[in-house]
Amino acid sequence: MRHAPVLAAVLVAMWLVLNDTLAPGQVLLGVLCALVLGGWAARMRPLRPVLRRPHLALGLLWAVFVDILRSNIGVGRIVLGLVRRRVIHSGFLDIPIDLHDPHGLAVLATIITSTPGTVWVDHDPGRRVLRLHILDLADEASWIRLIKERYERPLIRIFQS
């Protein structure tokens, strides 16, 4: 049986939080369940994430937090009609992307979905193109720069090279 230590630790923590206890019996039961279920889950997933520079995730997390705040305010202003000087155009944007690790792409999808104003549409691994839908498509170059420099570069450094 393959082992998934991180998954098992997360499952134990979730078990204990949900049961709201640190009683030895519950800890034992949780560890047992986590090891068995984690082993099964690891066998079902052929790919394993390789974290090369996990410490970079902290900076990325902070950047994403700041961007969530900023984009919520931006979308809120558009919805309430506070942007009066120009017409807002929404549309699709194709971004050339070098990230190809599946786990890195999953994290990128999570980031892009959780910042309002951008929604993931599709990723073409053959042409290495990522298509997004963007609510305020005024400045395409700055969106491409945001995705590539702020998110993709740390993700490549964490998951790939």
Partner: peptide, 21 residues
């Protein structure tokens, strides 16, 4: 505000941004 966006934004793809707020 996000829910108002669900009502006000013009096409479906734009409304998704409001819902995600």
């Amino acid at each position: 505000v996000g829910s108002i966006g669900l009502l006000r934004l013009r096409d479906f793809q734009a409304r998704m941004h409001g819902a995600s707020m």
